[in-house]
Design a protein around this nucleic acid. Sequence first.
DNA 1: CGAATTGATTCAGTGAACGAACCGACCGTG
DNA 2: CACGGTCGGTTCGTTCACTGAATCAATTCG
Lengths: 175, 175
Amino acid sequence: MALGKDYATQQCSIARALEVVGERWTLLVVRDALYGVRRYNDFLVHLGAPRAVLANRLQTLTAEGILEKRRYQESPPRDEYVVTERGTALWPVLLALGAWGREHYGEDRLRVFRHAACDTELAPTGLCPACGVTVPAEDVLMVPGPGLDPDPADPVSRALLKPKRLLQPIDTDRV
Amino acid sequence: MALGKDYATQQCSIARALEVVGERWTLLVVRDALYGVRRYNDFLVHLGAPRAVLANRLQTLTAEGILEKRRYQESPPRDEYVVTERGTALWPVLLALGAWGREHYGEDRLRVFRHAACDTELAPTGLCPACGVTVPAEDVLMVPGPGLDPDPADPVSRALLKPKRLLQPIDTDRV
DNA sequence: CGAATTGATTCAGTGAACGAACCGACCGTG
DNA sequence: CACGGTCGGTTCGTTCACTGAATCAATTCG
């Protein structure tokens, strides 16, 4: 990646972070991983990225310890990519980025994030206004917003219509 | 930009945000703008980006309303790029990203961000632990950390060694 | 007048992204 | 046991963006 070469001289942890997750598609892969996507093919259809790029990103993210490749069945050997703690730590970044995007460019809200314990909607900082705590990703409930297409084409988007906890694997087994 | 084409189908405000600020160098330009960098040449020496890319990013960011091009002197005509409210709204994203980068990759802390009102260090969420408020960017005091090179080559890095408020223009007039 | 400063644009070379095709391992069905 | 389908990729030619060096125009300073 050409990124690292120049950013390395930056003396800045933002630049350091962007070396790792600043490439095209990378943060969207992490987003999907947090949403519960785990399989190569599910990433592929949901992201629409070229296969070679996806394979490269999954490999890089695994090497960086953001995802973990895990064998979930032998014969045929199948691996899934599960987000690690380091990857989960990117959740506040994605939340803030999404809040900014919606605030300044989006009309309707597409997804709403709630504190699973009290069902209160999170602030863009990740704080639960009711409980006063910063909600960890595993306690976040993702609910579809009014702006979301109710009948998407791909099965992954369809699985993501159901309210679900972050990090919980998606469930694509249905009509 | 090739970014927009694919991300547009994503039904996601994170993807929408990345369409705008997801390109290489873009977030670093915004970071510098928040740090008080305003002039083409200052961005250039501090970032080390190719001139054509910098010119392109400044133009795009201006078109997106994240920076504002402002004439600061006639004869010779000189413009500076000042961060807008929309650009300032990216501060929490950069803070979270920097916190993640330092946490997972940095050894020393390079910059410390404090609440100007009470001098307390900010949480990665932007919250002031003492006051309990989310500190707006203009009330953030940036202080060099122990890991920062005390004698950098370029004048912009040298100007950024002094404690300063975010958004306040940098001062490069010195030895 | 000549040199320096500022804010760019142009251009050739390189590397990355794109999209389509292909591949190998395995499964289930007939 | 052939046949088609799925899964997780790799390969390849084209296009596009980034890179770095050179150039340029306007103006001020010496």
